[in-house]
Computed example of a mutant assay.
Amino acid sequence: MPTRSTATPGDTKIRLLDAAEALFIDAGYEAMSMRLITARAGANLAAVNYHFGSKDALIHAMLTRRLDGLNQNRLALLERFQLSLGQQLTCEHILGAMFIPALQQSRCPEKSGPALLRLLGRAYTDSSPFIRNFLRGMYADVAERFFRAFQTVLPHLPREELGWRLHFCIGSLSGILAGADTNSLIDDFTQGQRLEDPQLIGRLALVMVAALKAPLPPANGTCPFASMFAEREPVASNGAATVMANASNEDPPTCDVASQHATA
């Protein structure tokens, strides 16, 4: 006589979340399908509809179960640094508030362990409108709190310039986390020598702080790469040159680039 399954509805819900998380880390949002998720979870479509209602609601729940607590811990540490240090707050402290909770959570197996870092990398590099809108909608206040903190320690940087620099730094890190096993990468760089978490964050901060504190571009707008590109471009005909000259005299389109990057 066949044995009766002892799986509970709660078990099925967790399996669906775990399956969605694993598939998202491996392939990103657009490559996921309900068929792949349910097959990996050993469940059926009715279970997804019962527990979540839709694929997007399932992905929403999968991300919030990891990111909500993480971002609360980040903000708590940032606030602690701000209150205790005041004007002595530095870029290193703000970066520490961003990365220490993530690294600590990645050491906890019950909180997805090392997979958390790859999840963060994938979430912040995934190009699908759903993921972008989710992060902007759910965690815009977190991004803005950190952005304002960086403004207090880098007051000479215009908002747009600071936005670009943070976008490049965090985007580069996210790309590494999304595409590689972090522990293996660290072993390669350190040639097998143990690197403690404070040392790891110290190495990371060293590079990011250097990028954030780099000199501002020349005020006159000159760029050393402009002449390099010009040397590779063919000589334009008189007509084409006229069109290009007219285009260069038009006012460039304006957009609040910093606000976009602040909520990315």
Rank of each mutant, 00 (worst) to 15 (best):
A31G: 08
N71D: 08
D26A: 15
L63P: 10
A27C: 07
M62F: 00
G53T: 00
T8V: 03
A39H: 06
K13N: 13
N71S: 08
N49R: 11
M34C: 02
E21N: 09
D11R: 10
S54P: 09
T12W: 07
R40C: 02
G10D: 11
T8Q: 09
A61V: 06
I25S: 03
A20E: 05
L70F: 07
K55L: 03
F24C: 07
L17D: 01
T38I: 12
L17K: 00
A31L: 13
I37Q: 06
N49A: 07
N71Q: 12
G53E: 02
G28L: 00
A46I: 08
A39V: 00
A27H: 12
V48W: 06
D26G: 05
N49I: 01
A61G: 08
K55C: 00
A76D: 11
H51G: 01
A19R: 08
D18E: 13
A57I: 00
L63R: 14
I37S: 02
T12H: 13
T12C: 09
G42Y: 11
Y29T: 11
L36H: 14
D11I: 05
I14Q: 15
L17M: 01
A76Q: 09
A31C: 06
L70D: 07
Q72H: 15
V48P: 06
G69A: 07
E21Q: 15
R74E: 08
R35A: 13
E21Y: 05
G69M: 08
I25C: 04
I59H: 05
